[in-house]
Design a protein around this nucleic acid. Sequence first.
RNA 1: GCACCCAUAGCUCAGCUGGAUAGAGCAUCGCCCUUCUAAGGCGAGGGUCUUAGGUUCGAAUCCUAAUGGGUGUACCA
Length: 565
Amino acid sequence: MKLKSHINQIIQDAFTKADISHEAMSVSEATKPEFGDYQFNGAMALAKKLGKNPRVIATEILNHLDFTGALSKGEIAGPGFINLWLNPLWLASECQVASLDERLNIVKKETPIKAVIDYSGPNMAKQMHVGHLRSTIIGDTLANLLHFLGDDVIRQNHIGDWGTQFGMLIAYLEEQNEDGSVSLKDLEKFYKEAKGRFDEDATFADKAREYVVKIQSGDTHCLNLWQKFIDISLGHCEEVYEKLDVKLTRDDVRAESFYNAQLPKVVETLQNRGFLEESNGAKCVFLEGDEIPVIVQKGDGGYLYATTDLAALEFRANTLEAKRICYVVDARQAGHFKQVFTVAKNAEFVASDVSLEHIAFGTMMDKGGKPFKTRDGGTIKLINLLDEAVIKAKESINNKDDYSESELADLAKTIGIGAVKYADLSINRESNYIFNWDKMLSFEGNTSLYLQYAYARIQSIFRRFDGKIEGKILINDALEHRLSVMLLRFEDILNRAAVDASPNQLTTYLYELATLFMRFYEQNPILKEGVDEETKMSRLQLANLTAKTIKQGLEILGIKVVNKL
RNA sequence: GCACCCAUAGCUCAGCUGGAUAGAGCAUCGCCCUUCUAAGGCGAGGGUCUUAGGUUCGAAUCCUAAUGGGUGUACCA
């Protein structure tokens, strides 16, 4: 149910009937229960334009409001707020519809678009570390969300499999006289050693650069070694994806190297369309207002990541036919993406109606609020973090005796991984992220476990109830009323979260829903003695719809629910 | 130097297109388990929304400046 749109339409109709012209304005959720369910504040904004007292305008609107459907009551308050109450009978019937529907009565988009979500993007020369968590999780959530709402989602894992560092690795491999099979088992260590050689020995560094050229020119021996790197490294990533329960597969991998063949053409196109300038030997696009140019070809003829990104944009817009392209990448690259997007649009690599979005997220900070160092050790490998989370989750389980060993392992995995993901997704993605083990693995407050617990309690009710659910949902008290409104807001939240690409709007909603349910649950008995049959049936259905909503919400976040906790 | 981002309770954070008395969790202090899972619920205390101006009927939210922090700044990605 698109609740806001529905109410907005009723207000729109009142405007039409009252013969007041106005710009479209939306209702907002009431800030307090005593102000109703929704409030319309547009009368104040219109007052000046129309030269009328806002309360007079509010009265005119109110007099024309239709109170035979969703709304039951309207009141003017303060300077001209219109407070609106939803009709309990209408709420009940809408909840009923939602509870009987697989999709909770959330319609798929009428005009779906193709959306590319570029996320995770690990570097093949290194193992994934905690810094990769956000891109992977936020991107996966966004993909799930858009898919659920009906868009045609194309996941793209733009892995870093090209560039100087691979020349460095191969040079080191040659130096060690190895074929790769042994050393590559510990890629991380191997990378560090190679990096050490590269930094301290100029001759080695030159050699590394030679190897880069060799790979790029298609030298079979080098390409084979390179391929070995990629396979091993991608295997590491897939292990992480598996643990994270992220939907990325090998089919979603479209590596940097995939665009290699297109790079000369990118430069050529820019040249032909008159965007290219040569500066200090490099081929650049200078943008108005930017001091620093976008360099697409180095003085030595090599290409850069801006070139690859332009090729990727062209591919995504034209071959994949995407209308929305989202890059889930660290906020530090904001400048880069702003420039590349501008060039892509100006040079018509992508049509003007394609939405290019940098879904930026904050930097990982340590406890002292200082940025996490990723260069010189000290980074936590993502795989280790996930394993640790599962171990801690297992320790935290209270009644271990209730489970078999394998049940316990499954439960710990679901809870532990869910906690890590939720901790990350529940903060505003643009804020810097303070990495904290304790907080990440804590199960208190706005955490996945709170939601899991709410869900499990509902499941417990249904385990005890062995009848058949019949009858209607009845909204009889204030808590039931608020719960039903909250339940019906789900679609609005999802749409908002999709537009803003902000998972934390969904987590906030789910937490509020769960909190409201807990209160409802404490005060409104369901299966206890003395609850009449009608009320029992109604509350069972409200509980059921709550559970379904939590489950669906968590599913979009990539978190599984457990039936028992 | 220039550019971008951020600043909300002791701590970690919400706060959607400007709306009524700024909200959670943690921590602190009370209360509620013979009754559907206490990993829960109820209550208390805790705020000059960094500062100073401005726009507006109305500002945590928009604008300007200052301060503090983060980030980016030509051939790495």
